[in-house]
Amino acid sequence: MVETKMPPDAKLAFPKCVRLESKPHLFCPGCGHPEVLKALGFAIDELGIQKRVALGVDIGCSLLAWDFFNLDTIETHHGRTIPTMVGFKRAKPEGVAIAYVGDGGAYAIGMSHLINAAIRDENILVIVVNNGVYAMTGGQEAPTTLPGTRVKTAPCGADRHFVRAPEMIRNVNPNAYIARGITTIQVGLRKTLKEALQHQVENGGFAFVEVLSQCPMNWGTLGRPEKTFEYLEKTMLAAYPVKKY
């Protein structure tokens, strides 16, 4: 999973499919989303599928990606991006359908859509950005919040269990492409996203990539990147292995 060989365009500031007119982006300083999107953009460039991609973005921080790319993009309702892209793909199979969702959108309000899309083996790619917290709404508990973590709606500490999505999806779909990446290993993340997109292009069925990502704003580490990345690469990584499932 840990890919170190640099692709030739890796030093470009942005992928070719990015929409420069919408930059600088509106994510918070230090947010991981732009890094996930950048890896996704490079994967799309590499596969040459810009004109075929239909990108759906959820409500939550992911909504800020609505005009991030020169890609046909639809912003949906909170948790409803997966069924929207399922409906789209069924009606237009030649399109490459991507649902870009946060951990609240995918694992709480949209969980039934996620798991049923996996059961039905829908030929779409779901990307879930896992930063362990509801970020846009101000730092509430998510199904990914690690046990004991103090957040706005769990001031005494979060619940003892958390969602292990890859295992859950594998349990209902033996053929799906399933992997977890992390923002700090960009080359690996790009490779993972490329494989996941390729899986769809080859009509391989459901593809799912969770990406561990940082949220300095809600982790209380704004302006202290060493703390941000210590939490991401030690605490988060220990609970959520980065690998192909």
Binding site: A54, P83, G87, F88, R90
Partner: peptide, 22 residues
């Protein structure tokens, strides 16, 4: 296309997906 959704919320947004596809 026929698709039985997981619930009516899902069905409604799949419908939106079908519309977006023209």
């Amino acid at each position: 296309v026929f698709l039985q959704a997981e619930d009516e919320i899902g069905a409604g947004f799949m419908l939106i997906g079908g519309i977006l596809a023209g």
